[in-house]
């Protein structure tokens, strides 16, 4: 079983704070981490390998410091890492990202399963997985919360939906996007982390030329969507004490919740 895990390095948004005087994001001192859902993707791949054998490749697209995500993946027990890094990959939307990842998968060629995290905590789009599956013309199962059965030929997975779950089966190769409920992640081994920093570690660095892509197809240039402006939402406390009897106060509260689309 040859599995590819797609991982992303993201800023740890649980640590992000807003500067109270300027309203800007304070990015200083924010750690870069492997996206939480992607950790579950790695764990899923490890468990499948423990059951069926084979090997795991982790692919990460990002700036050169994203090498840490690859190293950590090797610390978990991933066999081989590939960092896709190039100036011209920067600023990619999900369209350009799925194309770049797709070319990397095509270059690897030999795979049975691709596992992605459901979504990344910086962008929260959940789009790259399905877009990659479409690029590769393989079936997808998203929101995977359980794997009922997996063989060299097919997979049966539980897909989380709003009202419960569906049990979906398909042949391989296929792409899964997984949610946190799927498994409990382990921690990387220190000895393997140390090995991953060695220059002989099984890590490759691929740029645009290695993928055989043109600069205008990737990154910002290869994107259809552009961010044109950003702002920081303010959550100033209103500090409003509602008045009247209980009935009145509850009514007033409900009105305010509705006005703010909270219920």
């Amino acid at each position: 079983m040859e599995t590819i895990v797609m991982i992303k390095q993201v800023p740890d948004t649980t640590e992000i704070r807003i500067d109270p005087s300027t309203g800007n994001l304070i990015r200083e001192g924010i750690e870069s981490i492997i996206n939480p859902d992607d950790r579950h993707a790695i764990e899923a791949a490890l468990q499948i390998k423990e059951k069926l054998g084979g090997s795991i490749i982790a692919i990460c697209m990002g700036p050169s410091q994203a090498i840490d995500a690859i190293s950590e993946a090797l610390g978990f027990g991933v066999d081989r890492g590939i960092l896709l890094t190039d100036k011209c990959f920067a600023g990619a939307d999900t369209w350009a990202t799925s194309f770049t990842l797709g070319r990397a998968v095509e270059k690897i060629n030999n795979y049975d399963l691709i596992i992605c995290g459901q979504q990344a905590i910086d962008g929260d789009t959940a789009q790259v997985g399905p877009q990659l599956a479409e690029y590769l013309h393989i079936p997808q199962i998203t929101y995977v919360k359980g794997i009922k059965e997996i063989t060299e030929k097919k997979i049966v997975a539980k897909r989380l939906v709003e009202s419960g779950y569906e049990i979906i089966g398909c042949g391989l190769p296929a792409l899964l996007t997984v949610v946190r409920e799927l498994n409990k992640t382990r921690f990387p081994r220190f000895d393997w982390l140390i090995d991953a920093c060695n220059k002989r570690a099984p890590i490759e660095i691929w740029n645009a030329a290695d993928l055989g892509v043109k600069a205008y197809q990737v990154g910002l240039q290869g994107s259809f969507t552009n961010v044109i402006s950003t702002y920081t939402p303010t959550f100033k406390r209103r500090g409003e004490i509602l008045e009247g009897d209980s009935q009145r106060m509850v009514e007033d509260l409900l009105t305010r919740l509705e006005e703010n689309h909270l219920v």
Binding site: D93, A126, Q127, P130, A133, E134, E162, F224
Partner: peptide
Amino acid sequence: ATHTGRDLAPRLSRRLGVGLTAD
């Protein structure tokens, strides 16, 4: 942006060759 929509929209966008904004 439901579980169905977030499964369908990206697949469809790639097939149509168009950009997509999430959520």
